[in-house]
Simulated scan of single mutants.
Amino acid sequence: MLGLQHLPASVLQAGAIFLSIMIEALPFVLIGSLISGFIEVYITPDHVHKVLPKNRFFRILFGSFIGFLFPSCECGIVPIVNRLLEKKVPTYTAIPFLATAPVINPIVLFATFTAFGNSITFALYRALGSILVALVLGIFLGFIQTNSILKEGAAPLHTHDFSQVSAWKKVGQAFIQSIDEFFDTGRYLVFGCLFASLVQVYIPTSMLTHISHNPFTAILLMMLLAFLLSLCSEADAFIGASLLATFGFAPIMAFLVIGPMIDIKNLIMMKHSFKPAFILQFIGIISVVITLYCLLLGGF
């Protein structure tokens, strides 16, 4: 403790901000990891496939909203989507699910609600933005892009089959999956919290204020930041809340909506199964829709 007294005040301030964000975010990451682990063991894509509607547009809606029942962050969504596609779930259902599941599930919405001082506004507009993106993606894949978006001959991702496991072993496997996800996502959370704390302490406020004066530039900057940080969707709201005073409502909303959809982890996993052309279309559609959505929110 005596050694800390000799550190510069800015380092101590950054450390305090880092710890405050971490303490707020960790419980939500833990809860999300636990629920995700049990979903991995007890719920299979077959269960979802059995309840798919027959109508194409209703399938798009189904894919856009079913994520509410999957309290998992984006880290585990791509393997689930690949499994759904292997089970012949249409792309215009699976891809909207990929876009909304990490955002509209109860854990993430409650984390967003809490991070912004128990404000329903941010949680509501975040959910609406993700649903809008999902609908556009679904319509694009269902009515415009009719070619296959999957790579030919792509090897299936490693998946787990717990159907033959005893009841007690299933519980144990659920906790094992939860622990793996917690530590896997926790490292990204640590980096994000550290980055946010350093931004608040060391980047001149005048520079950020100058950027935030232009809504379009600020939105693009926060979208890029969300991609670079690749935060867990159960914790990114706390990072966004810490930057709200600097950037304002619309750029932070762009950060919250695009982060779970386009991040480094997901793109690497998507590259395994999806054609590069579709990945570029995926990034382009999401970026354009979110930019327009947030510009409208900002009163541009």
Rank of each mutant, 00 (worst) to 15 (best):
L84F: 15
A167T: 13
L85R: 13
I219K: 03
D263F: 08
M270K: 06
Y125C: 00
V78R: 09
S230H: 06
A218D: 03
L225S: 11
E152M: 04
Q145S: 11
L267T: 02
A167W: 14
D184L: 14
G240P: 01
A94F: 09
I285M: 05
P53H: 13
R126S: 04
I219L: 06
L198W: 11
L292F: 14
V29H: 01
L34E: 10
Q5K: 15
F183D: 11
I120N: 05
R187C: 04
L243N: 02
H158A: 12
C73L: 02
I77C: 12
C294L: 02
R187I: 13
M1E: 09
D46W: 04
F182D: 01
L12P: 07
L61F: 13
I179M: 09
I252H: 06
H158M: 10
F58G: 00
I279F: 04
G32E: 12
I104Q: 05
S72Q: 11
I279L: 05
T91Q: 11
L98S: 02
V136S: 04
N55I: 05
L137E: 13
P156L: 11
F68L: 13
F116A: 03
M269R: 08
T91M: 08
I176F: 14
C193Q: 02
N55Y: 05
I203A: 00
G63I: 03
S36M: 15
F162C: 03
L225H: 07
V11M: 12
H49I: 12
Y188S: 03
I43H: 09
L52W: 08
G186F: 13
I60Q: 08
M223L: 06
N147D: 14
V41G: 10
I104D: 00
Q13P: 00
V190R: 00
L7P: 08
I77T: 15
T93C: 04
F227C: 02
S206M: 05
L295T: 13
N266S: 14
T159V: 10
A241T: 02
A245C: 00
T205L: 03
A155C: 01
L280G: 01
S36A: 14
I107E: 06
I31W: 11
G298H: 11
I17E: 12
N147G: 07
A154Q: 10
R126C: 01
E40G: 00
L267P: 00
L295A: 06
V133Q: 07
A226E: 07
G67T: 10
T91H: 05
Q13V: 08
G117D: 12
S119M: 04
I262R: 03
F62A: 01
V41E: 13
V199F: 07
V199M: 12
A155D: 10
A127W: 05
M22P: 00
R83P: 01
A25Q: 13
V289C: 03
A277N: 08
I35L: 15
L128R: 00
T209V: 02
L228H: 05
A196N: 04
K88E: 15
M207S: 03
Q281M: 12
N214P: 02
I211Q: 05
P8F: 13
E152A: 04
V201S: 01
M222H: 00
P27Q: 12
L124M: 09
L109Y: 05
F238T: 06
L297M: 11
I285H: 06
